[in-house]
Amino acid sequence: MLSRLWHSQQPDAEARFIDGGSSGHIDLVKAGKGGLAGGLCAVYVSSPSMQKDTNGDFATPDQQDALKSTLGMASLLMRLERRAAGRLKICRSAADIRQAIADGVFASVLHIEGVEAFAADLDALYVLHAAGLRTLGPVWSRPNIFAYGVPFRFPSSPDIGPGLTESGKDLIRACNELKIMVDLSHMNEQGFWDIAALSNGPLVASHSNVHALCPHSRNVTDRQLDAIKDTGGLAGINFGVLFLRSDGIRNPDTSLDLLADHIDYIANRIGLDHVALGSDFDGTTIPASMRDAADLQLLVDLLRKRGYDEAALAKICHGNWIRVLETTWGA
């Protein structure tokens, strides 16, 4: 969402997000229609011209350029909070989220997907935490000074490349100190296990699916799912068709039943308390039958037809997220 608005050429993009009529998957009107109460609002810095390196993987942006963009997107979220006049709140605690939901206010959590903006000194981490940063993924699907990042490959194991660097270990320790949630989506397998050994928080893959159903490098294996359960964490289902389909094809004509299949698999393997919705709205190609956030109830209705009762749906749709964030943040 933040990246789309930041790069938008429309002079009224922010107004369209607040009042409706945006071209993306999410705006406040679509969220209201679909019952989307909030989410992780991700700062994401794209690769330079989305260029790839000699291995066909995405190149890493320059740190100073990434810092400028990251600050710009964080300030954009703050501006939206002010302009939306009580319809969007940047939440810094689980209590904030609960209150926002009770008040019908979009509960926004400032998140960074790939911390290319950070130098090894981590000064930017501490400043952004003071500004409201509460979750981050150390990498997007490319290497940086903290970790390798799993590239987009199909079919492929996520066991690609090295894990955390020494700077990456310092980053995880700092996140533990600040009680920032560490997101394992986009992390390769070695990085996943390095964080599992080091972090004191629940393991969370915010928008990753089941590797056994779709053997994409971005998806999590059964062993990783078991580790997520053991720490009280969760896997948030990615709506992207690339990560749902067993053939790995970017085909919008993909049934929502595949999305429900991934939910079923995780619930059956590690329990209902450890599966949630991760969406990746505005970040990927989703099934055409779910045009945007306004159609979220189509998925909820499908899960209801599959036998999930209202208590189970409440866990999947919001309860598990709030529990994990409260455990991580301590409030």
Results as ranks from 00 to 15, higher is better:
residue 6 W to P: 05
residue 8 S to V: 08
residue 15 A to L: 09
residue 18 I to W: 09
residue 26 I to Y: 06
residue 28 L to I: 12
residue 33 K to I: 12
residue 34 G to P: 07
residue 34 G to K: 10
residue 35 G to Q: 08
residue 36 L to G: 00
residue 37 A to V: 15
residue 37 A to Y: 11
residue 38 G to W: 06
residue 41 C to V: 14
residue 41 C to L: 15
residue 42 A to Y: 10
residue 42 A to H: 14
residue 43 V to W: 05
residue 44 Y to K: 14
residue 44 Y to Q: 13
residue 51 Q to M: 14
residue 54 T to Q: 11
residue 55 N to K: 13
residue 55 N to H: 13
residue 56 G to L: 06
residue 56 G to Q: 01
residue 66 A to K: 04
residue 66 A to N: 08
residue 68 K to Y: 12
residue 72 G to T: 08
residue 73 M to W: 02
residue 76 L to H: 09
residue 77 L to V: 03
residue 81 E to M: 07
residue 81 E to F: 07
residue 85 A to M: 10
residue 87 R to I: 12
residue 90 I to H: 14
residue 92 R to W: 09
residue 96 D to S: 11
residue 98 R to G: 13
residue 98 R to F: 07
residue 108 S to I: 03
residue 108 S to R: 13
residue 121 D to Y: 00
residue 121 D to N: 15
residue 123 D to I: 13
residue 123 D to Y: 10
residue 123 D to Q: 14
residue 124 A to Q: 12
residue 125 L to V: 09
residue 127 V to G: 00
residue 132 G to F: 02
residue 132 G to E: 09
residue 137 G to N: 07
residue 139 V to Q: 12
residue 140 W to C: 01
residue 141 S to R: 07
residue 142 R to N: 01
residue 143 P to F: 05
residue 146 F to V: 12
residue 147 A to V: 13
residue 148 Y to P: 01
residue 149 G to P: 07
residue 151 P to Y: 01
residue 152 F to E: 13
residue 153 R to F: 05
residue 154 F to S: 04
residue 154 F to N: 02
residue 156 S to K: 11
residue 169 K to P: 05
residue 170 D to R: 15
residue 177 E to L: 10
residue 181 M to D: 04
residue 185 S to C: 04
residue 186 H to Y: 04
residue 190 Q to Y: 00
residue 194 D to N: 10
residue 195 I to Y: 13
residue 197 A to R: 15
residue 202 P to G: 03
residue 202 P to K: 02
residue 203 L to T: 10
residue 205 A to M: 00
residue 205 A to S: 05
residue 218 R to F: 04
residue 221 T to Y: 04
residue 222 D to V: 12
residue 223 R to T: 14
residue 224 Q to I: 02
residue 233 G to S: 02
residue 235 A to H: 00
residue 236 G to D: 01
residue 237 I to L: 03
residue 237 I to P: 00
residue 239 F to D: 00
residue 241 V to L: 03
residue 242 L to D: 09
residue 243 F to P: 03
residue 243 F to H: 05
residue 244 L to H: 10
residue 245 R to Y: 06
residue 249 I to K: 15
residue 249 I to S: 10
residue 251 N to T: 13
residue 255 S to F: 08
residue 258 L to K: 15
residue 260 A to N: 10
residue 267 A to V: 02
residue 267 A to C: 11
residue 268 N to V: 10
residue 271 G to K: 15
residue 276 A to K: 01
residue 278 G to C: 03
residue 278 G to S: 09
residue 280 D to G: 01
residue 281 F to I: 01
residue 286 I to S: 03
residue 291 R to M: 08
residue 292 D to W: 08
residue 293 A to L: 07
residue 293 A to M: 06
residue 296 L to D: 00
residue 297 Q to M: 12
residue 299 L to H: 08
residue 306 R to G: 03
residue 310 E to A: 14
residue 312 A to N: 10
residue 313 L to C: 04
residue 314 A to V: 06
residue 315 K to P: 07
residue 318 H to Y: 14
residue 318 H to C: 11
residue 323 R to Q: 02
residue 325 L to F: 15
residue 329 W to P: 02
residue 329 W to R: 04
